[in-house]
Structure formats: C-alpha cells, structure tokens
Simulated scan of single mutants.
Amino acid sequence: MPRPVRADISLAALRHNLTLIRQQAGQAKIWSVVKANAYGHGIDNVLPGLQQSDGFALLDFSEAIRLRERGWNGPILLLEGFFEQADLRLIDRYQLTTAVHSFWQLAAIADARLRQPVNIYLKVNSGMNRLGFAPDRLHAAWLEASACPHIGDITLMSHFASADSDTGVAAPMALIRSLPPEMGLPHCLANSAATLWHPATHADWVRPGIVLYGASPSGRWQDIAATGLRPVMRLSSQIIAVQSLQAGDRVGYGGRFRAAGAQRIGIVACGYADGYPRHAPGGTPVLVDGVRTGIVGTVSMDMLAVDLSPCPAAGIGSMVELWGPALPVDDVAQAAGTLGYELLSALAPRVPVVTG
C-alpha cells in the first residue's frame, strides 16, 4: 500500500470561499491569486473550483501557460511583471496582462514587436518598498505608457504592507488619493486582508490569495473565524508504530524530549520532507482520531512523534490530521513560529494530493 500521508483538496470549500469573497468585494472583480502553485494546493487541482473567478493572478510564466493549456481563456495577471524583454513574446502569445513597476519595462514594451497591445498594471510604491514607481514618478510613467502604441488598457496597482494589522491602510490610501486625478485609471489595490477588512480599498479589482484557501492573512485563525471561510487543504497521515516509554527515555534526533514517566507515543508517517515544519516545537498541535494532542521530540525527514496520553485507544492505523478543517493550519503555524502561508505553499511534491 502507499505511504499513508496525503493532502485532500476540497473543491466545495474552494467554491464556497470564492462565493463569500465575491459577496465581500461588492462590485469589484476578482483576481484569484494562484501563485506558488496555488499556495501549494496545485493549479490543476484548484482550477475547477475557481472557474467563477474574473481572472487569475500569479508570478510564473509556466503557471500562466498551464492555465491556458487547461482551457482558461480569461485574464491572467503577472504580479511581478516580466524580467527581460524576451518575456514579452510569451506575454503576447498567451495574451497575458503584466504588472509594470519600472521604466525599463516601459522601454522594453515600446521596443517590442507585438501582435496586439498588452494590458498593463502600473504599480505605485505606496509604502511596501518592494516593487513600484515612486509616487512622484508615477505621473511620468503614466504619460509614457499612455503614449506607447504597444500598451492597451492601464490599471493602477499597489500593495498594502499592513492591511492585516492595526496599522491598516490609511497612509497608503491617502497617498493613492493624492495622485494626479487626470490619470483616471481603474484601481486594483486590495490583497486578502484588505478585501476582508477594508472595503474602501475594493475599487475595480481585488486580489484575494490566502483567504481563498481558508487561512488567515494575519496568521490568526480567530481573525477569520466569523467569516465562514473554510479550510481547503487537509494534510493527514496515520500512526505507523507505537512506542511505550519509561521515565527518562528520550525521543528522536538529539533526544530533545525526555519522558517524565510511563508514556505511549505514536510515530506518524509525515516529516519535513513532506512539508511539515522541521522547527515545530514540542506541543505543536495535531489530532489523533479527532483528539487534540501534540508532537514530541524533533521532527525528522519522514516521521514525527506524537503524545498518545490524551487518546489511550489510539494505535497503529489511527488517523492523524496535521492540519485541516478540524485543526486550522494557522494554529499549527503559530506554534511553529511561522504563518499558514508557508506551511501550505511548502507542501512537498512527494505528498499525494486527492481532489474532491
């Protein structure tokens, strides 16, 4: 039989989440963000559940081409834009929309040989200080783009650094409102957090990412508990061995865990080569036959150990949920000192994925 670790992808949860986000977004259209192989869920796997999207946003040309090959004929947005002039051949061939955040990209489009004008998302740096034109250079960029015959529709784009925190979006929104009004561009501003919590940012397009997959932009499940969003991925495995410890016995590499007394532990077929965080400390939550317990010892490449004290009936073959509908990935990530984003997108290729 195959190794028992697997990831189940719920298309029903994905459709449900997209419906909730559309209700939240009002009249704004939705770019469903499927970067990083749909946050680890697999583009092929999620496409059937996201057919009601208005467009897809991602980074890699290979993923954009994959969407076209799978029959998606709607808009596709390259969130980081293109990286060299030769990339414009693919943008032209596959009718992609591209972010433009630099004057060299505008010059590359002007010099390209295109069959049709390319639609662009002109990005302004509103405080994130990653990509985007400085606000005092945006008007010049817009003038250059507007004069280029190879450029079609232009949309203003930005990204919020703190929409998921108390800092909020007031400062970047004030900057955006101060831009020259003669540009008159449609706007695409809202990420997942802004889509949920800052309706004034919704404008013409929103770009939900992590919320599509049922995890929280803030990293705290409690922050989205009242929204009705549902986890899309369930990572599960089974106990493949049971060890009975005595006081002083140690577990795993380095013997980080030491039993205080008699104790049963279960060995689970899942490790960091499957995408489980190696640095997860003892006590990181798992469910064994639906009972919440915690890991013990060091996570190894292929296995981890769990305390069976709260579930004395558990044994070989018992089901283990590492994260999913009954155990939010944000809870696991928080215990491990990271975010649900990282855990979901780090799912290893060797883990079988079942879609249903």
Rank of each mutant, 00 (worst) to 15 (best):
P2Y: 03
R3C: 01
R3H: 11
V5D: 00
R15D: 10
L18K: 12
R22V: 08
G26T: 14
S32Q: 09
N37S: 13
A38N: 09
G40I: 04
H41S: 13
G42Q: 14
G42L: 06
N45R: 14
L47T: 09
G49S: 07
L50W: 07
A57M: 14
L58E: 12
F61S: 03
W72K: 09
G74C: 06
L77D: 04
G81F: 05
F82M: 03
F83I: 10
F83L: 07
A86K: 12
L88E: 09
D92G: 10
R93P: 02
T97Y: 11
A99Q: 10
H101M: 12
S102P: 01
A108I: 11
A112P: 13
I120E: 03
Y121W: 12
N125Y: 08
G127R: 12
M128N: 04
R130A: 12
L131T: 04
A134L: 15
P135V: 06
R137S: 07
R137K: 13
A140W: 06
A140C: 13
A141C: 14
S146A: 15
H150A: 12
I151K: 00
I154E: 00
M157P: 01
A161G: 11
A163I: 06
S165V: 12
A170K: 13
A174L: 04
I176D: 01
P180Y: 11
P181M: 08
M183Y: 12
G184F: 05
P186A: 06
N191L: 07
A193D: 04
L196T: 06
W197Q: 15
P199M: 07
A203W: 02
P208F: 11
L212F: 06
S216A: 14
S218W: 04
R220Q: 15
R220P: 01
Q222F: 04
D223I: 12
D223A: 13
D223L: 02
R230P: 02
R234L: 10
I239M: 05
I240N: 09
A241E: 15
S244P: 00
L245P: 00
G248S: 00
D249T: 01
F257L: 00
A259N: 00
I265T: 02
G266R: 01
I267N: 09
V268F: 06
C270I: 14
P277I: 05
G282T: 11
P285T: 14
G290Y: 05
R292C: 07
I295L: 14
I295P: 00
V296L: 05
T298M: 13
S300Y: 03
S300C: 06
M301G: 08
D302V: 05
L304I: 02
V306I: 08
L308F: 02
S309K: 04
P310I: 04
G315S: 06
G317D: 07
V320C: 04
L322V: 08
W323F: 15
P325Y: 12
P325C: 09
A326H: 15
P328E: 04
A336I: 08
G337D: 13
G337I: 12
T338F: 10
Y341Q: 08
E342M: 10
E342L: 14
V351G: 03
V353H: 10
T355K: 12
T355F: 10
T355Y: 11
